[in-house]
């Protein structure tokens, strides 16, 4: 248990696993195979790339998380090839789109962004239980020092939506905030940098909702915030 709590990726996998299990009675057998296949595809692709192309150590936790997120958010009634394509794309993006030797885009988000561009509905099935997500999410965010990201996001998200007379809490996705927004490698560290990163995502989510509401504003906002990573890297605080 101590070991589990030490590596927060294990905790994220555990949380995703619990969210997945809770959804099974409603999602049914197709949902089970859909999510498990997504995880297997993402992990399998990561193994192949690391083993045969990069000759790196096999650490699959990130790929498992990406697989859970992509398959848990994509509509599971879609054809299987949809899952295959976008899970592969998520992992490939991690190894292909790099800046100074590191990936700057959240891999799962890239896969989901591409899916939504092709008109595949994102049903966010895995994010259906908000209380457990918030409870575990706050602990994870605090442990990996990502609270400034969340604070920045919430201030702008809530402020801008309230200014337009829209209840932000009826739209907010806690799954997005606590699982996707604070992904360690692509959201950066530091209080100021984290706050700015979250602020960009918060503003972008409002702008996308307001001017391009057909597009998933959470996925879009994270992509926009990730775009700023090369600039934000200069902030050392």
């Amino acid at each position: 248990m101590k070991k589990l709590l030490r590596d927060k990726k294990d905790l994220v996998i555990l949380l995703l696993g619990i969210l997945f299990l809770i959804k099974i009675p409603q999602g049914g057998i197709r949902f089970v195979f859909w999510v498990l296949s997504g995880v297997l595809i993402a992990a399998g692709c990561d193994i192949l790339i690391k083993r045969f192309f990069l000759h790196q150590e096999l650490v699959l936790k990130s790929a498992i998380i990406s697989g859970f997120i992509v398959s848990g958010i994509l509509d599971y009634h879609q054809p299987w090839f949809i899952l295959l394509i976008f899970s592969l794309l998520a992992i490939l993006s991690k190894h292909i789109i790099r800046f100074k030797g590191r990936h700057i885009f959240n891999p799962a988000n890239v896969g989901l962004l591409a899916a939504s561009l092709f008109g595949i509905p994102l049903t966010w099935n895995i994010g259906s239980r908000i209380y457990i997500t918030i409870a575990v999410g706050i602990y994870i965010a605090y442990s990996i020092r990502k609270l400034p990201h969340i604070l920045g996001f919430l201030i702008f998200f809530i402020g801008l939506f309230v200014s337009q007379g829209i209840n932000p809490f009826s739209l907010i996705s806690w799954f997005f905030i606590f699982i996707m927004l604070i992904e360690p490698k692509t959201s950066g560290f530091g209080k100021l940098r984290g706050f700015i990163f979250g602020s960009i995502a918060g503003i972008a989510s409002f702008v996308i909702y307001r001017f391009s509401p057909q597009y998933d504003f959470f996925i879009g906002s994270l992509f926009v915030a990730n775009l700023f990573n090369p600039l934000l890297e200069r902030i050392k605080k």
Partner: peptide
Amino acid sequence: FDILCSIYCGRKHHD
């Protein structure tokens, strides 16, 4: 056939 919402609309969007 399911009629679904294809644009994220809040925490129970999946329902």
